[in-house]
C-alpha cells in the first residue's frame, strides 16, 4: 500500500535539495535559465521581493496560470509562495501540484496570530525563521524545511548571517544543556521538550535549513554555506543583476565549492553590475519583512 504525504517523504524532498540553489523566477524564460544554470528548484512568483518592496500594497499568491506554465516548462521542482496563515491559498497551490509551498513573510500576512497547520497537507512546506525557537515552532506546525528569513529584496546578506549564526549558536547551547535546563529553555522558546531533545541528540535542526533573504553574489552563497546552511535560496539577486545567466551559474558553483577560495575567485570575476541593494538602517520598522509571523 502506498502512503502519500508522510513527514518522511516531505522532509526527504528537502534533503534531496541540499547543497543546491533555489532561484526566484517570474517567467518561463527565467525558469529555463535557472534550470540550465543548475538550480535544484525554482520559486515561481509574480514579482521578486525587491519589486514587491518597491510596489508596496498587498502582496498575494501568484496567478495559477503563470505557475502552471512554469511547472510545464522545467523538469526540476517548482515551489510557490503563499501568505502566512492563508489556508486557502495553500489549498490552491496543493491543487495545482506545486512541489513545495513557501509560507512566506515576503507576501503580506493573512493571519497575525496563526500559521497554517501544515500537517494537513500532502505537499511539504518551507518556512522562514530568525532563531531556533521560531524554527522549531514552524516544524511543530508541520514545516518540512526551514530557511533563514534574512531581509528579502535587499541584496544585503547581513540579516541572513545574523539568523543563521543565531540558530547555530542556539543549537550549540542546546547540545550542552542538562535535562532540567532543557525544560526551562523549551518554555522560554515556546517549543516542546521532546523537540529540543531531538536537537540535542542530532546536534542540528530536525529538518533541512537553507539560507534566504539577501543572498546576492557567489561569495554571499559561499559565506552562508560556511556558516552551516544546507543550501541557498536566491531571490532578487539573480534576475536583478546585469547578467542573470552568468550570476546564476556562478552562485551554483560557489555553493558546491564553498570551501575553495580559488574557485570562488574564478566564478566571482566579471559578473557585471549586481543588484544595487539596500542598507538596513534605511528601512523603517514596517519595511522589515522579517518581523512578520514569528
Amino acid at each position: 500500500m502506498k502512503e502519500q504525504g508522510t513527514f518522511r517523504v516531505k522532509k526527504g524532498m528537502a534533503q534531496m535539495q541540499k547543497g543546491g540553489v533555489i532561484m526566484d523566477v517570474t517567467t518561463v524564460e527565467q525558469a529555463k535559465i535557472a534550470e540550465d544554470a543548475g538550480a535544484v528548484a525554482v520559486m515561481a512568483l509574480e514579482r521578486v521581493p525587491a519589486d514587491i518592496r518597491a510596489a508596496g500594497g498587498v502582496a498575494r499568491m501568484a496567478d495559477p496560470v503563470m505557475i502552471k506554465q512554469i511547472m510545464e516548462a522545467v523538469t526540476i521542482p517548482v515551489m510557490a509562495k503563499v501568505r502566512i496563515g492563508h489556508i486557502a491559498e495553500a489549498q490552491v497551490m496543493e491543487e495545482l501540484g506545486v512541489d513545495y509551498i513557501d509560507e512566506s513573510e515576503v507576501l503580506t500576512p493573512a493571519d497575525e496570530q496563526y500559521h497554517i497547520n501544515k500537517h494537513l497537507f500532502k505537499v511539504p512546506f518551507v518556512c522562514g525563521a530568525r532563531d531556533l525557537g521560531e524554527a522549531l515552532r514552524r516544524i511543530s506546525e508541520g514545516a518540512a524545511m526551514i530557511r533563514t528569513k534574512g531581509e528579502p529584496g535587499t541584496g544585503n546578506v547581513v540579516e541572513a548571517v545574523r539568523h543563521m549564526r543565531k540558530v547555530m549558536d542556539q543549537i550549540r547551547q542546546v547540545v550542552g544543556k542538562a535535562d532540567d535546563e532543557l525544560v526551562v529553555m523549551a518554555k522560554e522558546m515556546g517549543v516542546s521538550v521532546e523537540m529540543l531533545e531531538e536537537v540535542r541528540k542530532e546536534g542540528r535542526l530536525p529538518v533541512v535549513n537553507f539560507a534566504a533573504g539577501g543572498v546576492a553574489s557567489p561569495a554571499d552563497a559561499a559565506l552562508m554555506m560556511q556558516l552551516g546552511s544546507d543550501g541557498i535560496f536566491v531571490g532578487s539577486g539573480i534576475f536583478k543583476a546585469d547578467n542573470p545567466q552568468k550570476v546564476a551559474e556562478a552562485i551554483v558553483k560557489a555553493t558546491m565549492h564553498y570551501n575553495d577560495p580559488k574557485l570562488l575567485t574564478e566564478v566571482s570575476k566579471g559578473l557585471g553590475q549586481a543588484m544595487p541593494g539596500l542598507e538596513m538602517a534605511t528601512l523603517t520598522d514596517s519595511d522589515r519583512m522579517q518581523e512578520r509571523g514569528i
Binding site: 500500500m1 502519500q4 518522511r8 523538469t75
Partner: peptide
C-alpha cells in the same frame, strides 16, 4: 523521470 508524478504523489511503501 518523475514517473509517479510530482511531489504530492511521492510515497512510502
Amino acid at each position: 523521470r518523475n514517473a509517479f508524478g510530482r511531489q504530492r504523489e511521492s510515497f512510502e511503501t
